[in-house]
């Protein structure tokens, strides 16, 4: 299956370069959709189906629609670049090398002696059923929603705020002259 992994990673890299290079924003949105599909397949190969679920729902579904809605408010062509951007390229290369350098210390994929497999407190699995009054058989759910509930609440708040901000940006500017029919239509569509 190594050939499959190499093929998927090569396709991912090609799509990323295409997104960066293409000037037509419409096509760029489509390439981000393709990238999401590929990324989700890659997550599935890495045995992370929950991340793949999220990537499929958010990346390929919602974000494509949001990007298109943004395109409706802007132009469809990116402005041509006058001169070759040297400084941003340097910054990206330095940041990328720092990230790659950071991965050198990480344990190998699937290593059973990795800290994430050895340092886990077994108390969660033992006490979960008692703490949840025996009503929640899924330990992952009890950790997410109860043991680190405040963390999840914070994440949800961040996502909720981001959603409100996106809605505010994508909202049509309010019309000055409003007659009765238009007002009803607005209520119906936004209420």
């Amino acid at each position: 299956m190594i050939a499959v992994d190499i093929c998927i990673l090569a396709l991912l890299a090609t799509t990323a370069v295409a997104v960066a290079r293409i000037r037509n924003l419409w096509a760029a949105v489509m390439f981000t959709g393709i990238y999401s599909f590929l990324g989700a397949s890659w997550m599935l190969i890495l045995d992370a189906p929950d991340v793949a679920f999220t990537e499929a729902a958010v990346g390929a579904g919602i974000s494509t629609v949001l990007m298109l809605a943004t395109l409706a408010l802007t132009s469809r062509e990116e402005k041509p670049i006058k001169k070759f951007p040297v400084l941003p390229l340097l910054v990206v290369i330095v940041t990328g090398s720092a990230l790659v350098y950071g991965t050198l210390d990480m344990p190998r994929f699937g290593d059973p002696t990795a800290p994430v497999h050895t340092r886990m407190d077994p108390g969660f699995i033992e006490k979960s059923e008692h703490d949840m009054h025996g009503e929640m058989p899924n330990v992952v759910t009890s950790v997410l929603a109860s043991y680190r509930g405040y963390d999840t609440l914070g994440e949800t708040t961040v996502i909720f705020t981001a959603g409100i901000a996106v809605l505010l940006i994508l909202r049509k500017p309010p019309k000055r002259k409003t007659n009765a029919a238009f007002g009803q239509e607005q209520e119906g569509s936004h209420g």
Binding site: A40, A57, A60
Partner: peptide, 17 residues
């Protein structure tokens, strides 16, 4: 199940596009 979700997402995204 993921494949099912993907086909649904594909359909919705296509309709939106």
């Amino acid at each position: 199940d993921l494949a099912l979700l993907y086909s649904l997402m594909n359909f919705i995204g296509m309709v939106a596009l």
